[in-house]
Design a protein around this nucleic acid. Structure first.
Length: 471
RNA sequence: GGUGGGUUGGCCGAGAGGCGAGGCAACGGACUGCAAAUCCGUAUACACGGGUUCAAAUCCCGUACCCACCUCCA
C-alpha cells in the first residue's frame, strides 16, 4: 500500500517514494514567535502531527524537524512597542506555543531548532551562494547581502510564477539591490536596532534575512536532499520559493515534496488580521477541551479552507463526545480497552489516510465502527472489545485517543483521586435512586437524577444498572 | 496585471462521471415508569447558463460571486 500525497510543487497527488526506504525526513516551518498562538497557527501543527503519526503507523521511521524563527523584523518591532527585550518576547511566545501544542497533543518533533542558534550555518550558506555567483553584498554601506534572483533560472518554479510578473520585494531598502525582486539573505545592523540582535559576519554585524534559516537548518538536520517540506499556504511565496531557490542555487536538491495546509478564517478574514486574542488557544480552551478542538481541526481535510465558528466547534465537540461515550460504555463492560494492532485498522480507514491524509473519510469510518459497537453493547461483549480496540487505534493515529494519558487533566493523579471520590458519592445516590424506582416512587427517583444533573453529571440507565458521566 | 483555490442540504463537512460519506440539528419509531443515552427510519444538496455523454455535483465552455498569494503572515 502506498501513501499518496498532494505535492503543491507538482500540483497533483503523487505516490510517496522516500529517498531512503523506510525513512522519512520532513521539515515543517513552525512559527515566528512574535505573538500569542491562535487557532490558525496550531492547525499546521496538528495537520503535520497527523501526517507524522500516519507515517509512523505505516512503519516509517520519521525524522521531523520543525523550526521556530526567533529573530525577525516583527519581533523587533513588537518588542520595542512593548518595551521589552526582543529575546524575552520570542522566548515567552515560544513557551506559549509549546503549551498550545501540548494542549492539543501535538507531539514534539525530533528536534525544534531556533534560528538564532544557527547563525554560523547561515553565514556558511550565504558565503557559498556568493562564491557561486548567486548572491552579492550590497555595494552601499548597509552590510546587506542579497540573493540574485535573475541568476537562478529556476526562480518561480515552485509557485508557477514568472519573474517578470512579480512585484518587488519590500524586505529591505532597495537601493543596494541589483533587481528589486532580490531578497535579503543578511541584513546589516541599523542604528535603531538593539546590539543584542546582531551577530558578527564577513559583511559586518547584522542578522539573518527571513528565509535563510530554514534552508540552513534543513540542510544541517535533514541533509542536502530530504523528503517533505511543509507549512501554511501563505508560505508558498515568497518563503518557500526563496528557500528552494537559495538551497538549490547552493547545490542542494532540497525538498522532494511540498505540502501546504489551508487557512482557518473567521468571518472570511484570516486570523492574523482579525479578532486579537479571542481565538488564542487558552481562550478557546475555556470553551471546549483540547481534544475537542483537535477533533475539529482533524475532521476537516488539511487542504480545505475552514471558516471558524464557535457553533461549528461546539458541533464538533458534541460529535466527538459520541465517540468518547462509546468508549466509556465499552470500558464499563470490558474493564479495559485494548489498542488494536495497526495491521487491524479497518481497510477503509487505511485507504482514506493513504489518500492524501483523508481524515474526513477516516473519521467517517470511526463513526461506522462506533455505531456497530453501540449495537453490540447490548449483547456481544466480544464484538464490543474488537470494535472498541479498533476505534482506539484509529483515534490514536489521529492523536485523539481519549484514553491516552496525555489527555489526563493533571499529571499528579489528582483527577483520578477526584474521580474515585465522586464515584463513591454517586454510587450511594444511584443506589438510593434504584431503591426509589423499585418502590415506584418516581418523584424521589427523578429528584435524585435532577440533583445529579444540576451538578453537571448525567446518568445513563442500562439493563445492568445506572452509570454516570461528567457532561 | 500574474498565480492558485473555492461556491454541496437548516448547519458543518466529504466526494470527483452511474450506487445520496459522515457528523450536528430536526422529525417519526423502538427501548424507558418518564427521560437521557443508544438503535432503526425520514426529509432537505451540489452557484448560474450552455455543452459532451446512455448517464454530470463530478468532464468541457462561459458567467457571477468569494477567498488566498505576488517579499509581515500557519
Amino acid at each position: 500500500m502506498t501513501i499518496r500525497l498532494y505535492d503543491s510543487a507538482a500540483r497533483q497527488v503523487r505516490d510517496f517514494c522516500p529517498l531512503v526506504p523506510g525513512k522519512v525526513g520532513m521539515y515543517v516551518c513552525g512559527l515566528t514567535v512574535q505573538s500569542e498562538p491562535h487557532v490558525g497557527h496550531v492547525r499546521s501543527g496538528v495537520n503535520f502531527d497527523v501526517l507524522r503519526r500516519w507515517f509512523e503507523a505505516s512503519g516509517y521511521q520519521v525524522d521531523f524537524i520543525r523550526n521556530i524563527t526567533d529573530i525577525d523584523d516583527k519581533i523587533l518591532t513588537k518588542s520595542a512597542d512593548q518595551s521589552r527585550h526582543w529575546y524575552n518576547l520570542a522566548y515567552d511566545m515560544s513557551i506559549q506555543l509549546d503549551k498550545a501544542y501540548d494542549a492539543l497533543n501535538v507531539a514534539p518533533p525530533t528536534y525544534e531548532p531556533a534560528a538564532t542558534g544557527h547563525i554560523p550555518e547561515m553565514i556558511e550558506m550565504i558565503t557559498d551562494l556568493i562564491d557561486r555567483g548567486h548572491a552579492y553584498p550590497a555595494p552601499d554601506d548597509t552590510g546587506d547581502v542579497y540573493f540574485d534572483v535573475l541568476s537562478w533560472a529556476g526562480y518561480g518554479e515552485l509557485t508557477g510564477q514568472r519573474v517578470d510578473d512579480m512585484e518587488p520585494a519590500g524586505d529591505a531598502d532597495p537601493r543596494g539591490k541589483r533587481d528589486p525582486r532580490d531578497f535579503a539573505l543578511w541584513k546589516g545592523r541599523k542604528d535603531s536596532e538593539p546590539q543584542t540582535a546582531s551577530w558578527p559576519s564577513p559583511w559586518g554585524p547584522g542578522r539573518p534575512g527571513w528565509h535563510i534559516e530554514c534552508s540552513a537548518m534543513a540542510l544541517k538536520y535533514l541533509g542536502s536532499a530530504f523528503d517533505i517540506h511543509g507549512g501554511g499556504v501563505d508560505l508558498r511565496f515568497p518563503h518557500h520559493e526563496n528557500e528552494q531557490a537559495q538551497s538549490r542555487a547552493a547545490g542542494h536538491d532540497f525538498a522532494n515534496y511540498w505540502m501546504h495546509n489551508a487557512w482557518i478564517t473567521t468571518a472570511g478574514e484570516k486570523m492574523s488580521k482579525s479578532l486579537g486574542n479571542t481565538l488564542s488557544i487558552p481562550s478557546v480552551l475555556t470553551r471546549v477541551r483540547g481534544i475537542e478542538l483537535r477533533f475539529y481541526l482533524v475532521a476537516a481535510h488539511y487542504r480545505s479552507h475552514v471558516e471558524f465558528s464557535f457553533e461549528a466547534l461546539d458541533e464538533a465537540a458534541a460529535g466527538f463526545q459520541r465517540i468518547e461515550h462509546f468508549l466509556t460504555r465499552a470500558r464499563d463492560v470490558l474493564g479495559e480497552i485494548a489498542l488494536a494492532d495497526l495491521e487491524k485498522l479497518p481497510e477503509d480507514f487505511r485507504a482514506a489516510m493513504d489518500d492524501d491524509l483523508g481524515t474526513p473519510a477516516a473519521v467517517a469510518v470511526i463513526y461506522d465502527e462506533v455505531r456497530e459497537g453501540n449495537k453490540a453493547l447490548a449483547d456481544n461483549a466480544e464484538d464490543v472489545a474488537e470494535r472498541a480496540a479498533r476505534v482506539r487505534a484509529m483515534l490514536a493515529v489521529l492523536g485523539l485517543d481519549p484514553l491516552d494519558p496525555h489527555w489526563a487533566e493533571s499529571g499528579n493523579g489528582t483527577a483520578d483521586k477526584l474521580t474515585a471520590a465522586l464515584d463513591v458519592l454517586l454510587t450511594q445516590l444511584l443506589e438510593q435512586r434504584a431503591q426509589a424506582r423499585a418502590a415506584k416512587d418516581f418523584a424521589a427517583a427523578d429528584a435524585i437524577r435532577d440533583q445529579i444533573k444540576s451538578a453537571g453529571i448525567e446518568i445513563v440507565d442500562t439493563p445492568t444498572g445506572s452509570q454516570w458521566n461528567v457532561i
